[in-house]
Each structure stands twice: as structure tokens, then as C-alpha cells.
């Protein structure tokens, strides 16, 4: 066996990174962990509570329904945005002057800040003065997102689709552009039809970018806060109170620091778990293709 040279000085070079990571990740996280297992009544006075807050959160129907809403929302978002994004990318021109026009149009929604998107749609969807709200009512739909949960959901989903489908489009388009023209020729010579080309060439070639798109859209929609907050503030009632909105309500609105901290940790673990699942899937895909 060859002896490895040991150079302890390398640890020294890692210190700055450790310092920064400690400052911006570990310390805040540990503070939250601290809060989640203690109770406090005044600054500096803490009582150890163990898993009390966790038990309370996990058994509360309020958390269950927020979590349920969150998963439903994310599922709807992924089910719409991923296929729609791929479809738009397929329909976009591959060459010519229209390529840049399409790309710019696609990138525009991505450049708009979250709260501005929320404010835009807030006004756009108002039933009395908003173009969308007024138009829908004029067409005979009874639509008022400030009062009807279904209308609120419809608006939030539509807003997110408008805001973020472009990301999927751009990623899928990048995947499509990397396919050499010879693949299409080969398929044509083989006598493969349009669907076979999509199923056996384009989809496998887009697999990796689509997994990335799925991961990004999952994380983003799972953590959605600003847009529904600006649009409806989580209402009407609690109908669009997703996890992060619920969390902020608990922490800032009700000042239940223990509950909020326990929720944060659970929230964090869920996101981490799903990301880990995606990551392993991605790595396995790497071996296969």
C-alpha cells in the first residue's frame, strides 16, 4: 500500500468556509432548533420542553390542512407546468429570427419580482376593475377570488403557471437544442413518426434537464409565500394558507415561537427529504444514460 502524504495545513485553508457556513447556516438553524425544544416567556428565560412542540404541531389539524394544501398546490403546479413547458419548448422554432423573440418573451415573467407578480395579479383578477376578473364575470362566470376559495386557488395556480412555466420551457428548450440534427434524420430514415421521435429521442435526451426543472419547480412551489400572500393573504378564510404562510402567521402573527420553530424544522426536513430523493434519482439516471 502506498502511504498517503498527510498535510494538516489543508484544514487551515478550510476554516474561512467553515466560518461562513457556520454564520449563515448552522448558527441560525441551531437557533431554530433551540426554540423548537424550549419555551420562553421573557427574554433570557427558557424552559426545556423536549418534543412537546413537535407533538403539538404534528397532531394539530391546522398543520395537517396547511400541509395538505401545500402538497395539492405543488402537485397541481408540477402537473401543469412540466408538460406545458415541454409542449411550448417543442413548439418553439429551432432556427431563424423568431428564436430570440421567443426566448425574450419566455424570459420576461422570470424577471419580475415575486411581490410585483402578486400585486399585478391582485389587480388583474379583481372582479370589478381587473381585466381578468371583469372579463370572467362578463363571460358569465361568477368569479371573485377574495371570497371564493375555488376562485382563489384558480388565480394562485394561474399566476404561478404564468410566472414559472417559462423556466421549464427554457430548460426543456436547452435540452432540445442539444440534440444534433442527425438524430432527426436518422429517425426519419428509420420511418419513425412524430410521437416516436418525441418518445424515443427527445424525451430521453431531455431527461436530465427535466429532472432539474422538476426539482426547481418542486422546491419553489413548495416554499411559495410571497405571491399568495400579496394576492389573498392566505384567504379567503384559510383556503390558500400554504405551509410558509401558516408558519409566518404562527411566528409573527401569534408569536408562538416554539410551534413556529418546530414547524420550520419539519418543513426543512421535508424539503431536504424530497431533494435527496430527487438527487438519488438523478445520480441513478446518470449511470443509466
Amino acid at each position: 500500500m502506498v502511504a498517503k502524504t498527510v498535510n494538516q495545513r489543508a484544514w487551515f485553508l478550510v476554516l474561512p468556509v467553515l466560518f461562513i457556513v457556520a454564520l449563515n447556516a448552522i448558527i441560525p438553524l441551531m437557533t431554530v432548533v433551540n426554540y423548537s425544544i424550549q419555551d420562553t416567556f421573557s427574554p433570557g428565560v427558557f424552559f426545556f420542553e423536549g418534543t412537546k412542540w413537535y407533538q403539538e404541531v404534528l397532531s394539530s389539524s391546522r398543520f395537517h390542512s396547511a400541509l395538505g394544501r401545500q402538497f395539492l398546490f405543488t402537485a397541481i403546479i408540477l402537473a401543469i407546468e412540466i408538460p406545458l413547458g415541454v409542449a411550448v419548448a417543442l413548439a418553439m422554432p429551432r432556427t431563424g429570427p423568431w428564436v430570440s423573440v421567443c426566448l425574450v418573451l419566455m424570459a420576461l415573467p422570470l424577471l419580475i419580482p415575486w411581490n410585483v407578480v402578486g400585486a399585478m395579479w391582485n389587480i388583474f383578477a379583481l372582479p370589478d376593475i381587473g381585466l381578468l376578473g371583469y372579463g370572467l364575470n362578463w363571460l358569465g362566470f361568477d368569479y371573485n377570488y377574495t371570497q371564493q376559495p375555488v376562485a382563489a386557488w384558480f388565480t394562485v395556480v394561474l399566476m404561478d403557471v404564468w410566472h414559472w412555466t417559462s423556466l421549464v420551457v427554457l430548460l426543456a428548450y436547452a435540452g432540445l437544442s442539444s440534440i444534433p440534427d442527425a438524430y432527426y434524420q436518422a429517425a426519419k430514415i428509420d420511418g419513425a413518426g412524430r410521437f416516436a421521435v418525441f418518445r424515443y429521442i427527445q424525451l430521453p435526451k431531455m431527461k436530465r434537464v427535466l429532472i432539474i426543472a422538476l426539482l426547481l419547480r418542486f422546491m419553489d412551489s413548495f416554499m411559495i409565500y410571497t405571491e399568495p400572500f400579496v394576492l389573498t393573504g392566505g384567504g379567503p378564510g384559510n383556503s390558500t394558507t400554504f405551509l410558509s404562510i401558516d408558519l409566518v402567521k404562527a411566528a409573527i402573527g401569534e408569536f408562538n415561537l416554539g410551534i413556529a420553530a418546530a414547524m420550520s424544522i419539519l418543513y426543512f426536513l421535508m424539503t431536504l427529504l424530497v431533494c435527496w430523493v430527487f438527487y438519488t434519482l438523478m445520480m441513478r439516471g446518470e449511470d443509466e444514460t
Binding site: 444534433p180 442527425a182 438524430y183 434524420q185 436518422a186 430514415i189 424515443y200 429521442i201 424525451l203 430521453p204 435526451k205 444514460t289
Partner: peptide, 15 residues
């Protein structure tokens, strides 16, 4: 009834 082989290695990636 034509067959073609290209400079790039063209095979179905998922097969």
C-alpha cells in the same frame, strides 16, 4: 429503404 450512418454516433439514447 435507405440506411445512413453519421459522423456523430447516432443511437436511440434510451434503448
Amino acid at each position: 429503404n435507405v440506411a445512413m450512418v453519421y459522423q456523430q454516433f447516432i443511437n436511440y439514447p434510451g434503448f
